[in-house]
Design a protein around this nucleic acid. Structure first.
Length: 888
RNA sequence: AGGCGCGUAGCUCAGGGGGAGAGCAUUUGCUUGACGUGCAAAGGGUCGUGGGUUCAAAUCCCUCCGCGCCUACCA
């Protein structure tokens, strides 16, 4: 049988592409909703269609994929739904920009043609990110791909909108909302980001109407005075409360403003007098509602001063109007002071332009009743990991305001509301109505607005499963098992999914929410295109392979900490992939085409018994780390096991058996080597799916092993408790100590590696003696030793390098090999180290408080430790004295 | 203003009431028949400060100092 020759170094490129194509073609990750097993389901946080894969996605996908692949191994019926988000504003912006290059606006095309154009764009470019998800190796079910704006999701959106409207939880009205002049639409509160910016506090005189003087107000936005409708002072403020009920004259406009009293006004801030502008400030809006004030808006939807302002200012931008107003006030001698004042300014989270509070007709969702349920469900029905995010979640829900869901754009779910032009009736319906339900007229006009994209995203956990239709998927996979996402969308998305899930499914949308960190650059800065510090995951995949990238992200994904990523780390883990590859290469050179059918629990040698024991521990560690979302521990456990134990010790130790003549021993070791390697590949598979699949595919099998060629479908390795072997671990510790101790003597004394040395071991017990005797050959090969002599009465030459391992005295004769001064210094160094730790332990044991109060086991442990160290010290000292005696 | 998180080896970070850990970097040596993307060995830290609880604190509690983030407000 022709043995497949493995490349000398691992080359991920072809391998990854091959398996990614294979899995999708075979529909490996498309579960049967009627199939066996407990269900485990995850819905992907849908990336924007306009998006390109960034490190945040890469991390997010990796963690979800680990969970899905692990749960498949546990025999679960796993569904991971992929899809994208139609990203209303962002996508519309992209296509509008395209049109602009052709000298067109969306209005030139008209609504219908424009939407067609966006769909065309989506088809061409929009799915780009999906192919990038494929390159990450995400084991999603591509046959169930969804889009927040496809037909089925549209059905869900309508259903929800209409029901909420009927339940009185959606309403329409004129309110002050966040308005983006550039995107030309309303935004929800949480779509506004706040940035601290330097500004000015302008102190301006407003004359009193009765001519008895003036008061001075302070404002950061003087241009909005054109829309002032009152002055407000604190009734408790003795400086001004006599003015309440009087009137002031609004400069430049000339109209009278009532002076009202409200404790909202902070007497300490500014001048203590507040100009009230309900049309341009959220607090003033509230104040205006409370006091029944007129609302004036002096800015239009482009942010240009409109006809409600004095003629002179009309047509100006905000900045122009501010300058003009201040100049005019100054000319009239009304400016008292202009002081520097930093304040935070709201900006659009999509385009970063300044948000204007703007009065307009919008649709809202009443959040309070929904938020109440969503709050109560955590942690009872949904647990958040790490747990501390729960508090943030509560805090947001407690302070929630009604959600403005209408957007003045075209790309999105159009609001299913119609107005009858004949009788003015408002009709909200699932199916497009043709006649008015009230007057029977047929002149119905649909609302122009579309819904906030998050409105459809909020339904994602059940809309992707086919709701509102009664599907198998819905019954089988809802509630989903875990949602994996970054904390930046805890509010935007997670909280709203909770609300909608509870409202429409009467069940939380997920059992667990795992919040992962943000990926930053190596200096802790947020990656952004403008800073130029972006590490592109696709570049990394091309350079190092998806597995190396995935392993890196996994090893960094400790709960509750930001990830500082550097390319160097990814490179380091590519080396790890290569190490795994070469371990396999070694195995392939030493395994027969058919693995001997040996029961590994009958393993005999120290190496085999020890590695099998460790494998059992690793299985447990991987399992519990995965269940607790301690992803970094999965990576750490496997890295240490594979590199520091399997490769560094085990493979070196089995070489003699594999090269040897004892066919029975060889077969046993081959079986163990194969078992450990293949099971480790299965354990590692959720983290690095490609390389493990490739290795599984090239590895030979024992006869009768008819498991799939596809590692992704294999069960988690069965536990083998009979292989747990504490004695092997203890023996191994002794063995490693002897080998390392001997190596240390050699390298620290600068003895050249080729120089043959002898080793004498004066053993402290029969048990140790037999362990070492059984492994003499291994000591020779691993420590590069010519002759080994072992026994209780071994006499070593006085001129020897020395070490003590668990009471056993190692001696390496040095006559003619090295100058003894170096060895003396080395022994002194080791004695010094020993002394330091002994001091600590004996001090502790001299403390009666410790001896009396600490648990007996701990005290005994310390005593034993000290005794051992004392013994070691005595022996080392004797060995040193012997050396000194030779030196005279 | 409120909330959250973080200060541990040169760097990036695990850990967490009983003798300070990893990776990378550094130093030294090495064609050991899987791997120089490697092997072997070594150096390197009063675990931010001050206090408290405890027989015992890097670990738990409090103060402070630094750093980061989130929410709200800022006329």
């Amino acid at each position: 049988m022709a043995r497949k020759e493995l490349a000398k170094a691992y080359e991920p490129w072809d391998v990854e592409e091959k398996w990614e194509t294979h899995w999708e073609a075979e529909k490996t990750f498309s579960p049967d909703p009627d199939g066996p097993g407990d269900s485990y389901s995850i819905v992907i946080p849908p990336p924007n269609v306009t998006g390109v894969l960034h490190m945040g996605h890469a991390l997010n996908l990796t963690l979800q994929d680990i969970l899905c692949r692990y749960n498949r191994q546990q025999g679960k019926n796993v569904l991971w739904v992929p899809g994208t988000d139609h990203a209303g504003i962002a996508t519309q912006n992209v296509v509008e920009r395209q049109l602009k290059e052709e000298g067109l606006t969306r209005h030139d095309l008209g609504r219908e043609k424009f939407i067609e154009r966006v769909w065309e764009w989506k088809k061409e470019k929009g799915d780009h990110i999906l192919s990038q998800i494929r390159r990450m190796g995400a084991s999603v079910d591509w046959t169930r791909e969804c889009f927040t704006f496809d037909e089925q999701r549209a059905k869900a959106v309508r259903e929800v909108f209409v029901k909420l409207y009927e339940q009185g939880l959606i309403y329409k009205g004129d309110y002050l909302i966040n308005w983006c002049n550039r995107c030309h639409t309303a935004l929800a509160d949480d779509e506004v980001e706040h940035e601290a910016k330097p500004g000015k506090l302008h102190h301006i005189k407003y004359p009193l109407a009765d001519g008895s003087g003036h008061l001075v107000i302070a404002t950061t936005r003087p241009e909005t005075m054109l829309a002032d409708t009152a002055i407000c002072v604190n009734p408790a403020d003795d400086r001004f409360n006599n003015l309440i009920g009087k009137k002031a004259i609004l400069p430049l406009v000339g109209k009278e403003l009532p002076i009202i009293g409200d404790s909202y006004v902070d007497m300490e801030f500014g001048t203590g007098c507040l100009k009230v502008t309900p049309g341009h400030d959220f607090n003033d809006w509230e104040l205006g509602r409370k006091h029944g004030l007129e609302v004036i808006s002096v800015l239009d939807e482009e942010g240009i001063v409109n006809d409600n302002a004095p003629e002179k200012y009309r047509g100006m931008t905000v900045a122009e109007a501010r300058a003009a107003v201040m100049a005019d006030l100054d000319a009239e001698g009304l400016v008292v002071e202009v002081a520097d004042h930093d304040h935070s300014v709201g900006v659009c989270y999509r385009c970063k332009s300044v948000i204007e509070p703007h009065v307009s007709t919008q649709w809202f969702v009443s959040m309070k009743p929904l938020a109440k349920k969503a709050r109560a469900a955590v942690p009872a029905d949904t647990q958040i990991f790490p747990e501390h995010w729960t508090k943030t979640y509560y805090q947001w829900l407690d302070e929630i305001r009604d959600w403005c869901i209408s957007r003045q754009i075209w790309w999105g779910h159009r609001i299913p509301a119609w107005t009858c032009e004949d009788c003015g009736e408002l009709i909200v319906a699932k199916e497009d109505p043709t006649v008015c339900t009230k007057c029977g007229g047929s002149h119905l006009v649909q609302d122009e607005d579309v819904l906030d994209t998050w409105f459809s995203s909020a339904l994602w956990p059940f809309s992707t499963l086919g709701w509102p239709d009664d599907t198998k998927e819905l019954a089988r996979y809802y509630p989903t098992s875990c949602l994996v996402t970054g904390f930046d969308i805890l509010f935007f998305w997670v909280a709203r999914m909770m609300m909608m899930g509870l409202q429409f499914r009467e069940q939380v949308p997920f059992d667990h929410v795992y919040i992962h960190a943000l990926v930053r650059d190596e200096h802790g800065k947020k990656m952004s295109k403008s800073t130029g510090n972006v590490i592109d995951p696709l570049d990394m995949i091309e350079k190092y392979g998806a597995d190396a990238l995935r392993f890196t992200l996994t090893s960094f994904a400790a709960m509750g900490r930001d990830i500082k990523l550097s390319e160097q780390r990814i490179e380091g883990y590519k080396h790890f992939m290569n190490k795994i590859w070469n371990a396999t290469r070694f195995a392939m050179m030493n395994l027969p085409d058919e693995i001997p059918a040996v029961d590994v629990s009958k393993a005999e040698g120290l190496a085999d018994q020890w590695i099998l024991h460790r494998l059992e521990e690793v299985k447990e560690a991987v399992k519990s780390a995965t269940l607790d979302y301690r992803f970094n521990e999965i990576a750490q456990t496997l890295y240490k096991f594979i590199w520091s134990e399997f490769c560094d010790w085990y493979l070196e130790m089995v070489k003699p058996a594999l090269y040897g003549e004892d066919e029975e021993a060889k077969a046993r070791t081959q079986a163990v080597l194969w078992t450990v390697l293949s099971e480790t590949m299965i354990l590692l598979h959720p983290v690095t799916p490609f390389i493990t699949q490739e290795i599984w595919n090239v590895l030979p099998r024992p006869a009768g092993d008819d498991r799939s060629e596809d590692i992704a479908t294999l069960a988690f390795p069965a536990l083998r408790p009979e292989c747990l072997n504490p004695k092997a671990v203890a023996d191994m510790e002794l063995f490693m100590g002897v080998v390392s101790g001997t190596r240390n003597i050699r390298t620290e004394l600068l003895i050249e590696p080729a120089k043959k040395l002898d080793l004498l071991i004066r053993t402290v017990s029969d048990a140790d003696k037999s362990v070492l005797e059984a492994n003499t050959g291994l000591i020779q090969s691993l420590a590069r030793i010519e002759n080994v002599t072992i026994g209780p009465d071994v006499k070593a030459p006085k001129a020897s390098g020395a070490a003590v391992v668990q009471g056993n005295e190692l001696s390496v004769p040095l006559e003619g090999v090295v100058d003894f001064e170096a060895e003396l210094a080395r022994l002194d160094k080791n004695l010094g180290k020993l002394d330091k730790t002994m001091t600590g332990v004996s001090k502790k044991l001299q403390n009666p408080g410790f001896v009396n109060n600490a648990p007996e086991a701990v005290v005994e442990g310390e005593k034993k430790k000290l005794a051992e160290m004392e013994e070691e010290k005595t022996k080392l000292t004797q060995l040193k004295e012997r050396l000194e005696s030779v030196m005279g």
